[in-house]
Amino acid sequence: MSELPPLVFQAPVADWGWQIAWFFWFVAIGGGLAVAYWQVRRAAVAFTVFVATALGLLLVFFHLGRWWNMPLVLWELIRAGEFNLGSWMFLGVIILTVHLLLGALAAYAHAEDVGIYPPFGDRVREMTEGALFRGVFAANGVLSVVYSGFLLTQAHGIPLWGTALIPILWLISSAVAAVAVLELFYVLGLVDERVSVAGMKLALGLDALKLIAVLAFLHVSLTAMSAAARAGAEELVSGSLAWLTWGGVIGLGLAVPILLAALMLRYGKSKGLIAVSAVSSLAGVLFLRASVLLAGAWEPLLG
């Protein structure tokens, strides 16, 4: 076996690190809660979708190395009439912009709930209560989460990301994040008991699914043909990123919520434990995204 040169990780070169992880995290919350809005039509849900999507877009916009060039970029696109519909990033820009607009509409419809009475509030409320709006909102929420997964799978330089498990993992963890936010809303008195009761059982099932998906992702990567995928997975399991995997993704993100849910199912609910469990789950969703990003490396060319 030849002595391979050290792997080149993408984060120092392409800078897809924590800021992109936060962007994915906000997309996960905005997307997951848009699906929840089908059932839980509350102001807090609508406002959170809007704010999370807006924050995510702001983060990713200012992550651009040439964000100040965007007006010229848009002008050139429109002038030439050429749009790269084959690029997941271009599709993502459209999906997230639509999601921001839908989130704004939903928030507008709930303005009355917080004592603001904007013009045409009744009409907008009537529209957003309809199955068509809620269906489109939920579907776009799923699309925005799926997009953030396919964004990575299409980055052909990073073999660790070239697996369909990532969009699936993103979807499951987005559902975990949405349930965690609903549980926090229950603690804060923004949604009622029924939402929380359904949430705890759902969260337990989702955590189990997420654990299977995380372990599948690590297993597939550890046994992949690609040396970079294997090395990236080794970093996650026993290397410099192991603290993020075992402490953040598995420990905080899965073990703590599962343990607390089991305790509460046995001994009864506690708002304090629900809050700890929800925050822990949300942290796990962020750590999952960060760990997958930071472990991404190029295939060694020499060896």
Partner: peptide, 20 residues
């Protein structure tokens, strides 16, 4: 003129041929 600096091309290149 069309580049916004997203660095998707950087992560898309199997040969790590780009630098920023």
């Amino acid at each position: 003129r069309r580049c916004a600096g997203c660095r998707y091309c950087v992560t898309s290149c199997p040969y790590n041929a780009r630098w920023v």
